[in-house]
Design a protein around this nucleic acid. Structure first.
Lengths: 205, 205
DNA sequence: CATTTCACTTTACTGACGGTACAGTTTTTG
DNA sequence: CAAAAACTGTACCGTCAGTAAAGTGAAATG
């Protein structure tokens, strides 16, 4: 990694922490450059404006999140051949990971963008939309495999159910932040897992 | 209502729309006073600073939301004596109401506060926390009545389940905003309803 | 009817912030 | 060693939150 890339990443690391804890509007460039020990001109050499920073942050965040989900549910599939059980294991691993974060989950950049809408340009909003759509597709694929084997016990739209994975996580983060209780997120994920068990597992009644 | 109170409410009406669509940071006082046709000094006559405005907005918002939930689940209890069925009816009414909002749900001020944390003082954060706790208590009371009659088919913590009502709504709003698809929120509420059916309804398997 | 209080307006200002412009300097790399 | 990359320094602009303080018209109060 060249020196430029290194500085760019350092700026993004500092910005990400601040954005996730304080919000985008409350994160000042002056504060970032002070922490990074760089001048304002130096900052604008890397990012044309604050929106470009947001775009870069969101892109990197989504990439990492995708990687994490790949690893997690990939590992789960290694542990069990059956798609339903693999998914349930994946959710448990996910919940455990969220519970292990000793501090409150820092938040999701996607949600940050939603609640700071007009602070961002259309590029950011479109990337945000695409990310959520890709999560929908990811979970939908798994759920379709599950539904083929285990007929669902209630008439649910699998796309909605796929959205519920992301939704429960986003909602769980909001609840964790509002209550200042980090465990809430993990518990919400486990409740969604309980729903899937009741919905798909045959012997469950 | 005196003239002062009238102006105060007008300022809050304008501010609320802007905060919910753009976020708190992107809502400028200059913009509010322009829309309200008042001077800056006039604004600061009513609110000492932006935080006081936030506190007033949040207080009013939570009061209204509480009233709405009282009406909705009260009406549901009128329609059915059984606590489970009343709750299911209440959720359906809630989902219908959310679906009827032709535009995307404007968002929840509680979540806005979560994602703009350091923009607010401790008073705002504490009010935020208390609001979420009051929702937990509200739904917990109903769920306990339900669980007494219908033994849950999975070992779930009723407090977590109560949090899930708020969580699914908050998450649904985020998803609706990110996808720019207002129906998503209503669909998520109905999925939570499906979970309750599977969890409590005896003949459901 | 006079006086006080309320609900503002007017004017002038401060400091933080996002961003621009652009010339100059150091550091890295082919 | 030269060119390109990665900055620094300085000066500046408009917007924004917030302050200070004097003044004004209308309405309530005594």
């Amino acid at each position: 990694m060249g020196k430029g890339q290194e500085t760019r990443e350092r700026l993004m690391d500092i910005a990400e922490v601040s954005v996730l804890t304080k919000g985008f509007g409350a994160t000042s460039i002056d504060e970032i450059i002070a922490a990074a020990d760089i001048t304002k001109s130096g900052f604008f050499y890397h990012f044309n404006d604050k929106n470009q920073l947001a775009l870069a942050l969101l892109r990197r965040y989504v990439e990492r999140e995708d990687q994490l989900l790949d690893d997690l549910f990939g590992r789960a599939r290694e542990l069990h051949d059956d798609p339903l059980h693999a998914f349930l294991i994946g959710l448990k691993l996910f919940a455990e990971m969220m519970a292990d974060l000793s501090k409150a989950h820092p938040g999701c950049l996607v949600a940050t963008c939603c609640y700071n809408e007009r602070l961002f340009d259309s590029d950011v909003r479109e990337l945000n939309r695409q990310s959520v759509l890709s999560w929908r597709q990811r979970f939908l694929t798994e759920l379709e495999k599950i539904a083929e084997i285990y007929p669902p016990k209630d008439n649910v739209d699998l796309e909605d159910l796929a959205d519920m994975v992301s939704g429960v996580v986003e909602g769980g983060i909001v609840m964790s932040k509002a209550l200042e209780q980090p465990q809430v997120l993990a518990r919400q994920i486990l409740l969604f897992r309980s729903y899937l068990k009741l919905l798909f597992l045959p012997a469950y009644n």
